[in-house]
Nucleic acid binder design. Structure first.
Lengths: 191, 191
DNA sequence: GTCTATAAAGAGATAGAC
DNA sequence: GTCTATCTCTTTATAGAC
């Protein structure tokens, strides 16, 4: 399916919501007639499904790739945050749509996407658990909560991050890495 | 407007999305006829608007209330996290709807709600900035980023927190407070 | 305050020509 | 691969009785 079609769909789905986006708006955005869409796609929902698959396979491979290049447990978490944030913010529309519109998929497809998402979350939790075992990450909070807290911190940024501002995905990754690992409290000697 | 009407609307809006929720489903959920809704409300969007006002005034007063009861800067941040999470998770449907469906409001009303939200965010940023000035919170990351990071951490929990699980809003608040203030890294001596 | 009935508009999707 | 034309269904909202 044409990348432009998915890109335009994601843009509209993210701006106006999947259900509120009409095939008319979509075709206008693409500069074609409504009916032409149905040569590429059988149903409007196919677009949402493809966007979700795209976003998740993309972020998973990007995170895996970054993490695999370093071996120290703490460095692997830094790489994970960098990979997640840059993948997500470089393609905001598709990731935001995936993150917020899952409920609009048919049950079968929703289960499929949730299972992809679970796979990604297991990967993150494993990286954190390994770091706990190595003594680099605190063990008094369960790995599951540490993973959820990390994803909370990173994912919600999609709601306010403005690609045109001064803040870049990389500088945000630096700040959030430091915040996540060291905390917000003032420390006498920062490691 | 009847609280039951808003509660049912929020439940459906959060489960299926505002645009995807029909007045038919809403009336079925309430056990009345579709037309009866329009005695209480002029447009479907009125429901969304009321839900957003409710949620924001509620969380702002709850957070203000908690924070005002303590004076140590660090304690005020702990109170803020507790107040935010308990207010949000005790009324998940309305808060989740407010957090995710702003774009479905008319421009005028959206601006109004965003301004309410800005008011709340300024309050949080002030609490953090005061703590920075008092030397309790690190100053090498701008208060604005510390605020955004905190809201990211707390708000996204609405997507996965399950009120029927073993985790309570209070225990989650404890874990997230510790994570936010002290960080995920293992520390030799925890303060 | 709720009902039955219906208006009026907009939605997703298809048929068939080019 | 895109077009014009159209079908069919669902949507929000209103009129007016009780």
């Amino acid at each position: 399916m044409a990348a432009r079609l998915l890109g335009t769909a994601a843009e509209l789905f993210w701006r106006n919501g999947y259900a509120a986006t009409t095939t008319r708006e979509l075709s206008e955005g693409l500069g074609v007639q409504k009916a032409s869409l149905y040569y590429h796609v059988r149903k409007k929902e196919d677009l949402l499904y493809s966007i979700c698959v795209n976003a998740l396979t993309n972020i998973l491979s990007r995170a895996r790739d970054e993490v695999s290049q370093v071996s120290l447990p703490e460095e692997r978490i830094r790489a994970l945050i960098r990979g997640h944030l840059t993948a997500m913010l470089d393609d905001k529309d598709q990731h935001a749509t995936m993150l917020t519109e899952l409920r609009s998929l048919t049950p079968k497809r929703r289960r499929e996407i949730v299972s992809l998402r679970d796979q990604y979350e297991r990967f993150i939790e494993d990286v954190i658990r390994d770091a706990q075992k190595a003594g680099a990450i605190r063990a008094d909070i369960p790995a599951k909560i540490l993973k959820l807290g990390l994803l909370d911190l990173l994912n919600w940024a999609i709601f306010w991050f403005d690609g045109n501002g001064e803040l870049t995905p990389k500088s945000l990754a630096d700040d959030f890495t430091s915040l996540y690992l060291d905390g917000a409290k003032r420390q006498l000697q920062r490691r």
